[in-house]
Amino acid sequence: MRRILRWLLTSAVLTFTVSALTFVLVSLTPGDAARTILGRDATPEQYQQLRAQLGLNDPLAVQYGHWLVHAVHGDLGTALSTGQPVLLTLQQRLGPSLSLILGALVVSALLGVGLGVLSAVRGGAVGRALDLVSMVGMALPAFWLGLVLVAAFAVALPLLPASGYVPFADSPWQWARSLALPVLTLGIGGCATIAKQTRDAMLAELRRDYIVLLRAHGLPQRTVVLRHALKNAAIPVVTVLGLLLVGLLSGTVLAETVYVVPGLGSTAVLATQAHDLPLIQGVALCFTVVVVLVNLLVELLYGWLDPRSSR
């Protein structure tokens, strides 16, 4: 209960801070939505009339206060560039982004933990090879890796689509194919990080006295490694997974732009170009909620893996 209360308080402060900073920073960027909507051929009278209609002539604090009051009541306003409700736009774009983020997280977690455990148990050449692969994976720029994957699996070997997104409801198989390259682009770097962290944590646990005692009592190696050592080594791995998921939020901006995925990342880019403040605020709020929920999940996993940490 203490964890949940602390999470609620932190979440409220974080959400308010992010929304206020986003509002201020976007307002400081050159241009405005009225000029973008009307174009260069509009007269000054039309420009001023639209600014007054959109409320852009009000002081910044007044604009933010109006937005905050409506947001508390579940109304995020209307996108200035499309005329569509922001909430409806977020609902349409959230699915592709979550598919991309969760897919990359699952790939990173499964491969990273598996390689890390294997390296810690086998050691020797396997451990050194994993260190090398981890350094290479963390050093590769995501945009370069994405171009290489497209050239390899969409051009040289036309096995996967180079761009586009197919909803799961239309075709689960085509949905998986459309996400394969962007998921790999985001997941390879995370896999290397998780593998290195898992290996280091497992090596530390396998040297502890209770592991020696369990082996002396004749427990199978698989039980010792997976049921006891891996669970106790999971806390730092869970921390890295939480940080990785938060980092994937920014990674979606690149992946969705490169692979033309209609998600929140590409929406944020288009909204920024159009100076569409309500839509930018909505995307930032959505990302903040995801970060808050990830922090809650990590806190709950801490309590499950180590009950002493909740006291």
Score class of each variant (00 low, 15 high):
residue 234 A to I: 14
residue 17 T to L: 14
residue 73 H to M: 09
residue 150 V to K: 12
residue 26 V to G: 01
residue 169 A to N: 00
residue 101 I to S: 04
residue 18 V to I: 14
residue 30 P to F: 01
residue 161 P to M: 15
residue 147 L to W: 10
residue 130 L to R: 00
residue 49 Q to E: 11
residue 311 R to W: 10
residue 105 L to E: 00
residue 24 V to A: 11
residue 235 I to Y: 08
residue 108 S to L: 06
residue 172 P to D: 00
residue 24 V to C: 05
residue 172 P to E: 09
residue 115 L to Y: 03
residue 117 V to Q: 06
residue 7 W to L: 11
residue 9 L to Q: 05
residue 190 G to R: 03
residue 147 L to T: 13
residue 117 V to L: 09
residue 268 A to W: 02
residue 156 A to N: 05
residue 202 M to T: 11
residue 230 L to H: 01
residue 222 R to G: 04
residue 238 V to S: 12
residue 223 T to Y: 09
residue 214 L to M: 12
residue 38 L to M: 06
residue 87 L to S: 15
residue 175 W to V: 11
residue 134 S to C: 12
residue 144 W to Y: 12
residue 276 D to T: 07
residue 52 A to M: 02
residue 150 V to C: 11
residue 242 G to P: 00
residue 183 V to R: 04
residue 176 A to E: 04
residue 76 L to M: 13
residue 37 I to N: 05
residue 165 Y to Q: 00
residue 19 S to I: 15
residue 13 V to A: 12
residue 210 Y to L: 10
residue 58 D to L: 13
residue 93 R to Y: 01
residue 138 M to D: 00
residue 137 G to Y: 11
residue 98 L to H: 01
residue 256 E to M: 10
residue 270 L to V: 13
residue 77 G to P: 02
residue 152 A to H: 00
residue 179 L to F: 07
residue 256 E to Q: 09
residue 60 L to M: 11
residue 259 Y to K: 03
residue 29 T to Q: 15
residue 148 V to L: 15
residue 201 A to W: 14
residue 142 A to I: 13
residue 48 Q to M: 14
residue 261 V to K: 10
residue 171 S to F: 10
